[in-house]
C-alpha cells in the first residue's frame, strides 16, 4: 500500500531523513518509534505530502505520488496537536472533507452522524473544539480523517495529550476501529508500550534512519542494534568482557562484541558458582515486579526485574549473586555497545 524507497530530507544543512525505506502492506498498522527529534514527524509528513523528500520515491497503492500535492493523495492525517478548525463546530470539522469533495448535503449529514457515532461524540456535534477535552478533540480529529475513508491513515502522536488511562483505552479503541474499517495506518509515537499495543510492525528510528523494521515480538526478542535493544525495554547491553564473566552466556556471545540481556532475564540470589557477585545500588517497586540496579565488581551496572511472587526484597547495599535466567534469550550484537 505504502512503498517509500530511499527517502532523504534536508532542512537547510540538517540531514533529517537518511535513506528511509518503509513498505507497508494494505490493512497493516505500522508505528514509527524513536526519540524526540529523530525525524518521525518529517517522514510522516513526507508520506502525506506536506513535505517533499529531497531524494527517494513514494508509491501509494501502486501510484507514484512523490511530487503530488497533499490534496491529491488519498491520505488522512491526524496532527500532533490535532489541528482542529477552531471556528467550526465538531460537526463542521468532520464534514469539512466531504464538503471539499462537493458531496451532496444529505450524504454529508448521514456520514457525519455515522462518523460521530463511531467515536461516540454524537452529543458534542455542535460544540466547538476549544470546549472539548483533549481526548474528545483527538476523537474529532480521528473522525474527521476516517469519514473520508482514506486508503492510508497517518497519525502523529495522536495520544500524547491524554492521561495514561484514557490513552490505553484509546489505543485499544483505535486498533479496533482501524481493523474494522480496514485501512492502512502509520502512527508515530515515542512511547514504546503504545507501539507494542497498536502495531502489526514497528519501525524504530534513530537520527533519521530506520534502525529496524519488524513485528513487535521480533523487535523485542531480536533487536538488531544496541539502540533498538535499549530503546525498547531498556535492555542491559554488556561488552564482550563484561559478558564473558557469565559462564552460560559465552556460548550465545560467540565472539560478538556485545550481549543484550533483558532486565527480566536477570536473576538475583542463587549460589556463588552459577553467578557473578554484585551489590544492589538501587531498588524500586514497579507494581508486580521489583526493579534493581546491581553493580558488578568491574563497575558494570545491570538492571534486573524480579517477579515479587515469593521474592524477599533486597535492600540497597546488599550483596547478591547475579545470573542469567535463560542464556538463549540473550541476543549477541556484532557492533560495539
Amino acid at each position: 500500500m505504502i512503498d517509500a524507497q530511499g527517502i532523504n530530507k534536508f532542512f537547510g544543512a540538517n540531514h533529517v531523513l537518511r535513506d528511509c525505506d518503509l513498505t507497508v502492506e494494505g490493512g497493516e498498522v505500522v508505528t514509527l518509534l524513536g526519540a524526540s527529534g529523530c525525524g518521525k514527524t518529517t517522514l510522516l509528513r513526507c508520506i502525506a505530502g506536506f513535505e517533499t523528500p529531497d531524494a527517494g520515491t513514494l508509491t501509494l497503492a501502486g501510484q507514484d505520488v512523490t511530487r503530488l500535492p497533499p490534496n491529491q493523495r488519498d491520505v488522512g492525517f491526524v496532527f500532533q496537536n490535532y489541528a482542529l478548525f477552531p471556528h467550526m463546530s465538531v460537526e463542521e470539522n468532520v464534514a469539512y472533507g466531504l464538503k471539499a469533495r462537493k458531496a451532496p448535503a444529505d450524504q454529508i449529514k448521514r456520514e457525519v452522524a455515522d462518523a460521530l457515532d463511531l467515536v461516540s461524540l454524537t452529543d458534542f456535534a455542535r460544540r466547538f473544539p476549544n470546549s472539548l477535552s483533549g481526548g474528545q478533540q483527538q476523537r474529532v480529529a480521528l473522525a474527521r480523517s476516517l469519514i473520508l475513508q482514506p486508503k492510508v491513515l497517518l497519525m502523529d502522536e495522536a495520544f500524547n495529550a491524554l492521561d495514561a488511562k484514557l490513552r490505553g483505552a484509546m489505543q485499544v479503541e483505535l486498533r479496533k476501529i482501524v481493523k474494522r474499517v480496514g485501512i492502512t495506518a502509520v502512527c508515530v509515537t515515542h512511547d514504546q508500550s503504545e507501539a507494542l499495543t497498536i502495531s502489526d510492525r514497528i519501525a524504530v528510528m534513530a537520527e533519521g534512519r530506520i534502525e529496524q523494521f519488524a513485528a513487535p515480538a521480533q523487535i523485542y526478542d531480536n533487536p538488531t542494534s544496541a539502540f533498538v535493544a535499549d530503546f525498547i525495554g531498556a535492555a542491559n547491553i554488556l561488552t564482550r568482557d563484561a559478558a564473558a564473566r557469565f559462564s552460560h552466556a559465552a556460548k550465545t556471545l560467540n565472539g560478538n562484541a556485545a550481549l543484550v540481556i533483558r532486565p527480566e532475564n536477570v536473576m538475583l540470589g542463587g549460589t556463588p558458582d552459577d553467578g557473578v557477585a554484585g551489590k544492589v545500588v538501587f531498588a524500586r517497586l514497579t507494581g508486580p515486579a521489583m526493579e534493581y540496579e546491581v553493580a558488578l565488581a568491574d563497575g558494570t551496572v545491570l538492571r534486573a526485574l524480579v517477579d515479587r511472587d515469593g521474592h524477599v526484597p533486597l535492600a540497597v547495599g546488599a550483596d547478591t549473586q547475579v545470573a542469567i535466567r535463560n542464556p538463549d534469550a540473550c541476543v549477541a550484537l556484532p557492533g560495539a555497545a
Binding site: F50, N71, F77, F79, G97, S145
Partner: peptide, 13 residues
Amino acid sequence: NMEAASLGMGASR
C-alpha cells in the same frame, strides 16, 4: 497546520 489539515482533506488552495 490548519492549512495542511485542510489540504490533507482534499480542499483546494
